[in-house]
Design a protein around this nucleic acid. Structure first.
Lengths: 208, 208
DNA sequence: AATCAGGTGTGAATTTATTAACAAATATAG
DNA sequence: CTATATTTGTTAATAAATTCACACCTGATT
Protein backbone atom coordinates (compact mmCIF):
# COMPACT_ATOMS: atom_id res chain seq x y z
CA UNK A 1 0.00 0.00 0.00
CA UNK A 2 0.91 3.64 -0.42
CA UNK A 3 2.78 5.25 2.43
CA UNK A 4 0.32 7.12 4.62
CA UNK A 5 0.80 10.73 5.72
CA UNK A 6 2.46 11.03 9.11
CA UNK A 7 -0.56 12.74 10.60
CA UNK A 8 -2.80 9.88 9.60
CA UNK A 9 -0.39 7.36 11.08
CA UNK A 10 -0.45 9.24 14.36
CA UNK A 11 -4.21 9.24 14.45
CA UNK A 12 -4.47 5.58 13.55
CA UNK A 13 -2.21 4.74 16.45
CA UNK A 14 -4.49 6.70 18.73
CA UNK A 15 -7.68 5.29 17.29
CA UNK A 16 -6.39 1.83 17.92
CA UNK A 17 -5.81 2.48 21.56
CA UNK A 18 -9.25 3.95 21.96
CA UNK A 19 -10.68 0.95 20.18
CA UNK A 20 -8.84 -1.44 22.43
CA UNK A 21 -10.34 0.21 25.44
CA UNK A 22 -13.76 0.06 23.80
CA UNK A 23 -13.34 -3.68 23.53
CA UNK A 24 -12.43 -3.89 27.19
CA UNK A 25 -15.66 -2.11 27.96
CA UNK A 26 -17.53 -4.64 25.89
CA UNK A 27 -18.34 -2.28 23.07
CA UNK A 28 -18.33 -4.02 19.72
CA UNK A 29 -19.35 -1.24 17.34
CA UNK A 30 -18.43 2.40 17.21
CA UNK A 31 -19.58 5.31 15.05
CA UNK A 32 -17.12 7.59 13.35
CA UNK A 33 -18.38 10.52 15.36
CA UNK A 34 -17.84 8.71 18.64
CA UNK A 35 -14.29 7.91 17.71
CA UNK A 36 -13.90 11.52 16.62
CA UNK A 37 -15.13 12.85 19.96
CA UNK A 38 -12.61 10.77 21.81
CA UNK A 39 -9.86 12.56 19.95
CA UNK A 40 -11.16 16.10 19.58
CA UNK A 41 -11.45 15.82 15.84
CA UNK A 42 -14.27 15.59 13.30
CA UNK A 43 -16.04 12.47 12.11
CA UNK A 44 -15.02 13.26 8.55
CA UNK A 45 -11.40 13.15 9.58
CA UNK A 46 -11.89 9.73 11.06
CA UNK A 47 -13.66 8.42 8.00
CA UNK A 48 -11.03 9.84 5.73
CA UNK A 49 -8.26 8.19 7.71
CA UNK A 50 -10.06 4.88 7.51
CA UNK A 51 -10.59 5.42 3.81
CA UNK A 52 -6.82 5.74 3.40
CA UNK A 53 -6.55 2.48 5.27
CA UNK A 54 -8.57 0.92 2.51
CA UNK A 55 -11.11 -0.31 4.96
CA UNK A 56 -14.80 0.19 4.57
CA UNK A 57 -17.62 -0.74 6.81
CA UNK A 58 -20.60 -2.35 5.21
CA UNK A 59 -22.82 -1.84 8.22
CA UNK A 60 -24.43 1.42 9.21
CA UNK A 61 -24.45 0.61 12.88
CA UNK A 62 -20.90 1.76 13.28
CA UNK A 63 -17.54 0.18 12.63
CA UNK A 64 -16.94 -3.27 14.05
CA UNK A 65 -14.32 -2.54 16.68
CA UNK A 66 -12.47 -5.81 16.58
CA UNK A 67 -12.22 -5.80 12.82
CA UNK A 68 -11.07 -2.21 12.74
CA UNK A 69 -8.27 -2.88 15.22
CA UNK A 70 -7.20 -5.70 12.98
CA UNK A 71 -7.20 -3.50 9.89
CA UNK A 72 -5.16 -0.80 11.59
CA UNK A 73 -2.72 -3.47 12.64
CA UNK A 74 -2.33 -4.70 9.08
CA UNK A 75 -1.17 -1.26 8.09
CA UNK A 76 0.82 -0.11 11.09
CA UNK A 77 2.42 -3.26 12.36
CA UNK A 78 5.37 -5.05 10.96
CA UNK A 79 4.70 -8.74 10.55
CA UNK A 80 8.21 -9.74 11.59
CA UNK A 81 8.04 -7.66 14.77
CA UNK A 82 10.28 -4.76 15.68
CA UNK A 83 12.60 -4.18 18.60
CA UNK A 84 13.48 -0.88 20.21
CA UNK A 85 16.10 0.24 22.71
CA UNK A 86 16.22 3.21 25.06
CA UNK A 87 19.56 4.98 25.30
CA UNK A 88 19.99 6.94 28.51
CA UNK A 89 18.22 5.59 31.56
CA UNK A 90 17.69 8.74 33.57
CA UNK A 91 14.21 9.56 34.75
CA UNK A 92 12.94 10.11 31.24
CA UNK A 93 14.43 6.92 29.85
CA UNK A 94 13.10 4.97 32.78
CA UNK A 95 9.64 6.43 32.28
CA UNK A 96 9.72 5.52 28.60
CA UNK A 97 10.91 2.00 29.23
CA UNK A 98 7.84 1.65 31.38
CA UNK A 99 5.28 3.33 29.11
CA UNK A 100 6.50 1.79 25.91
CA UNK A 101 7.01 -1.75 27.06
CA UNK A 102 4.60 -4.16 25.54
CA UNK A 103 2.31 -1.63 23.90
CA UNK A 104 1.94 -4.01 21.00
CA UNK A 105 2.75 -7.69 20.77
CA UNK A 106 5.21 -7.07 17.95
CA UNK A 107 6.81 -3.82 19.02
CA UNK A 108 8.99 -4.26 22.05
CA UNK A 109 11.53 -2.38 24.09
CA UNK A 110 14.09 -5.12 24.57
CA UNK A 111 17.16 -3.27 25.80
CA UNK A 112 18.40 -0.08 27.39
CA UNK A 113 21.77 1.60 27.79
CA UNK A 114 23.45 3.82 30.33
CA UNK A 115 26.90 4.63 31.64
CA UNK A 116 26.01 4.49 35.32
CA UNK A 117 27.57 1.30 36.77
CA UNK A 118 24.78 1.12 39.32
CA UNK A 119 22.28 0.61 36.52
CA UNK A 120 24.27 -1.48 34.08
CA UNK A 121 23.48 -5.16 34.44
CA UNK A 122 20.14 -4.58 36.16
CA UNK A 123 16.57 -4.81 34.97
CA UNK A 124 14.83 -1.44 34.86
CA UNK A 125 11.07 -1.60 34.49
CA UNK A 126 11.58 -5.03 33.05
CA UNK A 127 14.16 -3.92 30.50
CA UNK A 128 17.79 -5.07 30.79
CA UNK A 129 20.29 -2.22 31.01
CA UNK A 130 23.63 -2.49 29.21
CA UNK A 131 26.67 -0.26 29.21
CA UNK A 132 26.75 2.14 26.27
CA UNK A 133 29.98 0.57 25.10
CA UNK A 134 27.94 -2.49 24.21
CA UNK A 135 25.68 -0.50 21.88
CA UNK A 136 26.91 -2.01 18.62
CA UNK A 137 26.95 -5.53 19.95
CA UNK A 138 23.56 -5.57 21.62
CA UNK A 139 21.75 -3.77 18.84
CA UNK A 140 23.01 -6.19 16.27
CA UNK A 141 22.52 -9.29 18.35
CA UNK A 142 18.99 -8.40 19.32
CA UNK A 143 18.06 -7.09 15.93
CA UNK A 144 16.99 -3.71 17.25
CA UNK A 145 15.72 -1.35 14.58
CA UNK A 146 14.59 1.63 16.66
CA UNK A 147 16.63 3.75 19.06
CA UNK A 148 15.03 6.06 21.59
CA UNK A 149 17.37 8.79 22.73
CA UNK A 150 16.98 10.15 26.23
CA UNK A 151 20.58 11.04 27.01
CA UNK A 152 21.75 14.38 28.40
CA UNK A 153 22.14 17.13 25.84
CA UNK A 154 25.91 17.06 25.96
CA UNK A 155 26.24 13.49 24.80
CA UNK A 156 23.42 13.63 22.26
CA UNK A 157 25.49 14.13 19.12
CA UNK A 158 28.02 11.53 20.10
CA UNK A 159 25.37 8.95 20.92
CA UNK A 160 23.48 9.69 17.71
CA UNK A 161 26.64 9.07 15.68
CA UNK A 162 27.23 5.87 17.55
CA UNK A 163 23.66 4.77 16.94
CA UNK A 164 23.97 5.64 13.27
CA UNK A 165 26.84 3.18 12.97
CA UNK A 166 24.87 0.31 14.41
CA UNK A 167 22.67 0.04 11.37
CA UNK A 168 19.63 1.15 13.26
CA UNK A 169 16.67 2.19 11.09
CA UNK A 170 14.83 4.78 13.12
CA UNK A 171 15.57 7.21 15.94
CA UNK A 172 13.13 8.85 18.30
CA UNK A 173 14.96 11.79 19.80
CA UNK A 174 13.86 13.35 23.07
CA UNK A 175 17.04 15.32 23.44
CA UNK A 176 16.45 19.01 23.03
CA UNK A 177 18.91 19.40 20.23
CA UNK A 178 18.14 18.56 16.65
CA UNK A 179 20.22 15.69 15.30
CA UNK A 180 21.80 14.98 11.97
CA UNK A 181 21.48 11.36 10.97
CA UNK A 182 22.63 9.53 7.86
CA UNK A 183 20.29 9.16 4.93
CA UNK A 184 18.11 6.10 5.34
CA UNK A 185 17.47 6.51 9.05
CA UNK A 186 14.03 7.82 9.92
CA UNK A 187 14.25 10.54 12.53
CA UNK A 188 11.44 11.75 14.75
CA UNK A 189 12.13 14.48 17.26
CA UNK A 190 10.16 15.72 20.19
CA UNK A 191 11.06 18.68 22.30
CA UNK A 192 9.33 19.17 25.64
CA UNK A 193 10.59 22.67 26.13
CA UNK A 194 9.00 23.70 22.87
CA UNK A 195 5.70 22.22 23.96
CA UNK A 196 5.77 24.15 27.20
CA UNK A 197 6.69 27.39 25.46
CA UNK A 198 3.90 26.81 23.00
CA UNK A 199 1.35 26.40 25.77
CA UNK A 200 2.77 29.48 27.45
CA UNK A 201 2.38 31.49 24.25
CA UNK A 202 -1.22 30.51 23.68
CA UNK A 203 -2.13 31.01 27.30
CA UNK A 204 -0.69 34.47 27.06
CA UNK A 205 -2.59 35.15 23.82
CA UNK A 206 -5.90 33.85 25.15
CA UNK A 207 -5.54 36.22 28.06
CA UNK A 208 -5.12 39.28 25.88
CA UNK B 1 0.15 41.43 17.17
CA UNK B 2 -1.78 38.73 15.36
CA UNK B 3 -1.70 35.28 16.90
CA UNK B 4 0.96 33.21 15.17
CA UNK B 5 0.34 29.71 13.81
CA UNK B 6 1.28 26.98 16.27
CA UNK B 7 3.92 25.60 13.95
CA UNK B 8 5.65 28.95 13.77
CA UNK B 9 5.57 29.28 17.54
CA UNK B 10 7.23 25.90 17.88
CA UNK B 11 9.96 26.84 15.49
CA UNK B 12 10.56 30.19 17.12
CA UNK B 13 11.04 28.45 20.44
CA UNK B 14 13.61 26.20 18.81
CA UNK B 15 15.35 28.98 16.93
CA UNK B 16 15.75 30.84 20.16
CA UNK B 17 17.52 27.98 21.84
CA UNK B 18 19.84 27.56 18.89
CA UNK B 19 20.51 31.26 18.94
CA UNK B 20 21.30 31.18 22.63
CA UNK B 21 23.87 28.52 22.04
CA UNK B 22 25.29 30.56 19.16
CA UNK B 23 25.83 33.39 21.57
CA UNK B 24 27.60 31.08 23.98
CA UNK B 25 29.93 30.15 21.17
CA UNK B 26 30.60 33.80 20.53
CA UNK B 27 28.73 33.97 17.25
CA UNK B 28 27.03 37.30 16.77
CA UNK B 29 25.46 36.92 13.32
CA UNK B 30 23.73 34.03 11.65
CA UNK B 31 22.35 33.45 8.14
CA UNK B 32 18.88 32.12 7.56
CA UNK B 33 20.28 29.02 5.90
CA UNK B 34 22.50 28.27 8.88
CA UNK B 35 19.59 28.50 11.24
CA UNK B 36 17.65 26.36 8.80
CA UNK B 37 20.31 23.66 8.74
CA UNK B 38 20.29 23.44 12.50
CA UNK B 39 16.64 22.50 12.33
CA UNK B 40 16.36 20.42 9.17
CA UNK B 41 14.21 22.99 7.42
CA UNK B 42 14.63 25.43 4.57
CA UNK B 43 15.97 28.95 4.73
CA UNK B 44 12.73 30.30 3.29
CA UNK B 45 10.85 28.78 6.18
CA UNK B 46 13.10 30.56 8.62
CA UNK B 47 12.76 33.87 6.84
CA UNK B 48 9.02 33.53 6.65
CA UNK B 49 8.76 32.79 10.35
CA UNK B 50 10.82 35.86 11.11
CA UNK B 51 8.69 37.85 8.74
CA UNK B 52 5.65 36.89 10.80
CA UNK B 53 7.54 38.14 13.82
CA UNK B 54 7.65 41.49 12.14
CA UNK B 55 11.38 41.56 12.36
CA UNK B 56 13.63 42.35 9.47
CA UNK B 57 17.33 42.46 9.26
CA UNK B 58 18.81 45.51 7.66
CA UNK B 59 22.22 43.93 7.21
CA UNK B 60 23.09 41.25 4.71
CA UNK B 61 25.70 39.65 6.86
CA UNK B 62 23.13 37.57 8.63
CA UNK B 63 20.74 38.24 11.46
CA UNK B 64 22.18 39.80 14.60
CA UNK B 65 21.80 36.95 17.07
CA UNK B 66 21.33 38.97 20.21
CA UNK B 67 18.71 41.20 18.64
CA UNK B 68 16.85 38.25 17.18
CA UNK B 69 16.64 36.50 20.55
CA UNK B 70 15.20 39.69 21.93
CA UNK B 71 12.61 39.93 19.16
CA UNK B 72 11.52 36.34 19.63
CA UNK B 73 11.19 37.05 23.33
CA UNK B 74 8.94 40.02 22.67
CA UNK B 75 6.53 37.74 20.89
CA UNK B 76 6.75 34.53 22.88
CA UNK B 77 7.28 35.69 26.41
CA UNK B 78 4.75 37.08 28.76
CA UNK B 79 5.96 40.25 30.40
CA UNK B 80 4.40 39.43 33.76
CA UNK B 81 6.00 35.99 33.85
CA UNK B 82 4.21 32.66 33.95
CA UNK B 83 4.27 29.83 36.44
CA UNK B 84 3.80 26.15 35.75
CA UNK B 85 3.23 23.08 37.92
CA UNK B 86 3.86 19.41 37.28
CA UNK B 87 1.15 17.04 38.47
CA UNK B 88 2.39 13.50 39.03
CA UNK B 89 6.00 13.12 40.12
CA UNK B 90 6.80 9.70 38.79
CA UNK B 91 9.82 9.30 36.58
CA UNK B 92 8.32 11.37 33.79
CA UNK B 93 7.22 14.20 36.07
CA UNK B 94 10.59 14.22 37.75
CA UNK B 95 12.35 14.36 34.40
CA UNK B 96 10.16 17.25 33.29
CA UNK B 97 10.67 19.19 36.50
CA UNK B 98 14.34 18.96 35.72
CA UNK B 99 14.27 19.78 32.01
CA UNK B 100 11.74 22.54 32.23
CA UNK B 101 13.08 24.35 35.25
CA UNK B 102 14.45 27.74 34.45
CA UNK B 103 14.34 27.45 30.68
CA UNK B 104 13.40 31.09 30.53
CA UNK B 105 13.66 33.76 33.18
CA UNK B 106 9.91 34.36 33.10
CA UNK B 107 8.59 30.84 32.67
CA UNK B 108 9.10 28.74 35.76
CA UNK B 109 8.10 25.42 37.21
CA UNK B 110 7.31 26.48 40.73
CA UNK B 111 5.41 23.53 42.16
CA UNK B 112 4.69 19.85 41.76
CA UNK B 113 2.10 17.45 43.10
CA UNK B 114 1.93 13.81 44.00
CA UNK B 115 0.09 11.46 46.35
CA UNK B 116 3.15 9.58 47.54
CA UNK B 117 3.81 10.65 51.17
CA UNK B 118 7.51 9.99 50.67
CA UNK B 119 7.63 12.72 48.06
CA UNK B 120 5.20 15.25 49.48
CA UNK B 121 7.00 17.97 51.40
CA UNK B 122 10.32 17.40 49.68
CA UNK B 123 12.17 19.25 46.96
CA UNK B 124 12.43 17.28 43.72
CA UNK B 125 14.92 18.64 41.23
CA UNK B 126 14.55 21.94 42.99
CA UNK B 127 10.77 21.96 42.79
CA UNK B 128 8.67 21.67 45.98
CA UNK B 129 6.25 18.74 45.95
CA UNK B 130 2.78 19.12 47.46
CA UNK B 131 0.00 16.65 48.04
CA UNK B 132 -2.60 16.63 45.28
CA UNK B 133 -5.23 17.64 47.80
CA UNK B 134 -3.51 21.03 47.92
CA UNK B 135 -3.97 21.57 44.18
CA UNK B 136 -6.53 24.35 44.40
CA UNK B 137 -4.74 26.16 47.17
CA UNK B 138 -1.22 26.09 45.78
CA UNK B 139 -2.22 26.92 42.21
CA UNK B 140 -4.14 29.96 43.34
CA UNK B 141 -1.58 31.12 45.86
CA UNK B 142 1.32 30.81 43.49
CA UNK B 143 -0.56 32.16 40.53
CA UNK B 144 0.14 29.12 38.38
CA UNK B 145 -1.32 29.32 34.88
CA UNK B 146 0.03 26.13 33.31
CA UNK B 147 -0.44 22.54 34.46
CA UNK B 148 1.70 19.71 33.18
CA UNK B 149 0.03 16.35 33.55
CA UNK B 150 2.19 13.29 34.09
CA UNK B 151 -0.10 11.20 36.22
CA UNK B 152 -0.95 7.55 35.59
CA UNK B 153 -3.61 6.94 32.99
CA UNK B 154 -6.21 5.90 35.53
CA UNK B 155 -6.25 9.20 37.36
CA UNK B 156 -5.90 11.39 34.29
CA UNK B 157 -9.54 12.37 33.89
CA UNK B 158 -10.03 13.05 37.54
CA UNK B 159 -6.90 15.18 37.78
CA UNK B 160 -7.82 17.09 34.62
CA UNK B 161 -11.21 17.93 36.10
CA UNK B 162 -9.58 19.03 39.30
CA UNK B 163 -7.12 21.18 37.38
CA UNK B 164 -9.94 22.70 35.37
CA UNK B 165 -11.53 23.93 38.57
CA UNK B 166 -8.42 25.73 39.72
CA UNK B 167 -8.74 28.38 37.06
CA UNK B 168 -5.64 27.20 35.28
CA UNK B 169 -5.21 28.56 31.75
CA UNK B 170 -3.27 25.87 29.92
CA UNK B 171 -2.64 22.16 30.22
CA UNK B 172 0.18 20.16 28.74
CA UNK B 173 -0.95 16.56 28.82
CA UNK B 174 1.52 13.67 28.67
CA UNK B 175 -1.04 11.13 29.70
CA UNK B 176 -1.87 8.79 26.88
CA UNK B 177 -5.54 9.53 26.94
CA UNK B 178 -7.07 12.54 25.30
CA UNK B 179 -8.66 14.96 27.76
CA UNK B 180 -11.76 17.10 27.68
CA UNK B 181 -11.19 20.46 29.20
CA UNK B 182 -13.52 23.43 29.62
CA UNK B 183 -13.65 26.13 26.99
CA UNK B 184 -11.00 28.74 27.65
CA UNK B 185 -8.25 26.36 28.70
CA UNK B 186 -5.60 25.78 26.09
CA UNK B 187 -4.80 22.08 25.76
CA UNK B 188 -1.68 20.59 24.24
CA UNK B 189 -1.27 16.83 24.19
CA UNK B 190 1.68 14.65 23.50
CA UNK B 191 1.61 10.92 23.25
CA UNK B 192 4.86 8.98 23.38
CA UNK B 193 3.33 5.73 22.28
CA UNK B 194 2.09 7.38 19.12
CA UNK B 195 5.56 8.71 18.41
CA UNK B 196 7.07 5.27 18.77
CA UNK B 197 4.43 3.68 16.59
CA UNK B 198 5.00 6.35 14.00
CA UNK B 199 8.71 5.66 13.90
CA UNK B 200 7.95 1.96 13.70
CA UNK B 201 5.63 2.51 10.75
CA UNK B 202 8.10 4.57 8.77
CA UNK B 203 10.95 2.23 9.55
CA UNK B 204 8.83 -0.61 8.25
CA UNK B 205 7.92 1.38 5.14
CA UNK B 206 11.48 2.43 4.40
CA UNK B 207 12.48 -1.21 4.54
CA UNK B 208 9.96 -2.28 1.93
C1' DA C 1 32.82 53.58 -8.46
C1' DA C 2 31.17 49.80 -10.89
C1' DT C 3 30.43 45.03 -10.81
C1' DC C 4 29.48 40.96 -8.59
C1' DA C 5 28.30 37.44 -5.25
C1' DG C 6 25.43 36.17 -1.95
C1' DG C 7 21.53 37.23 1.25
C1' DT C 8 16.91 38.93 2.27
C1' DG C 9 11.65 39.83 1.96
C1' DT C 10 7.64 38.56 -0.13
C1' DG C 11 3.83 37.70 -3.83
C1' DA C 12 2.49 33.74 -6.28
C1' DA C 13 2.31 28.83 -6.86
C1' DT C 14 2.20 24.47 -4.97
C1' DT C 15 1.50 20.96 -1.84
C1' DT C 16 -0.70 19.11 2.20
C1' DA C 17 -4.42 18.83 5.42
C1' DT C 18 -9.06 19.59 6.74
C1' DT C 19 -13.90 20.39 6.12
C1' DA C 20 -18.28 20.70 3.48
C1' DA C 21 -21.64 18.55 0.90
C1' DC C 22 -24.10 14.95 -0.75
C1' DA C 23 -25.38 10.38 -2.97
C1' DA C 24 -25.83 5.72 -1.57
C1' DA C 25 -26.89 2.43 1.91
C1' DT C 26 -29.15 0.30 5.87
C1' DA C 27 -31.02 -0.21 10.36
C1' DT C 28 -35.30 1.12 12.79
C1' DA C 29 -40.09 2.48 13.50
C1' DG C 30 -44.43 2.30 12.26
C1' DC D 1 -43.25 -3.45 3.70
C1' DT D 2 -42.51 1.41 3.33
C1' DA D 3 -40.86 5.60 5.12
C1' DT D 4 -37.60 7.80 7.96
C1' DA D 5 -33.58 8.93 10.20
C1' DT D 6 -28.69 7.97 10.36
C1' DT D 7 -24.30 6.90 8.92
C1' DT D 8 -20.89 6.06 5.50
C1' DG D 9 -17.60 6.92 1.43
C1' DT D 10 -16.02 10.16 -1.53
C1' DT D 11 -15.70 14.24 -4.55
C1' DA D 12 -15.22 18.96 -4.40
C1' DA D 13 -14.08 23.11 -1.86
C1' DT D 14 -11.42 25.41 1.51
C1' DA D 15 -7.77 26.40 4.50
C1' DA D 16 -3.09 25.91 6.12
C1' DA D 17 1.68 25.22 5.41
C1' DT D 18 5.55 25.19 2.55
C1' DT D 19 8.31 26.22 -1.41
C1' DC D 20 9.41 28.80 -5.73
C1' DA D 21 10.92 32.64 -7.96
C1' DC D 22 12.61 36.85 -8.18
C1' DA D 23 13.33 41.81 -7.22
C1' DC D 24 16.03 44.22 -4.19
C1' DC D 25 19.85 45.26 -1.10
C1' DT D 26 24.57 45.47 0.65
C1' DG D 27 29.30 44.34 1.46
C1' DA D 28 33.31 42.80 -0.95
C1' DT D 29 36.29 42.94 -5.00
C1' DT D 30 38.43 44.62 -8.76
Amino acid sequence: METLPGKTVERLSQYRRSLLSCLENGRDYIFSHDLANLHHITAVQVRRDLMLLGYSSVYRKGYPVRKLIEEIGKTLDSSEGQNAAVVGMGNLGTALAHYLSGIRPNLNVVASFDINPAKVGTLINGVPCHHVTALQKVIKEQNISIGIMTVPQDSAIEVADELGKTGIKGILNFTNISLNVPEGIYLEEYDMITSLEKVAYFVKKLGE
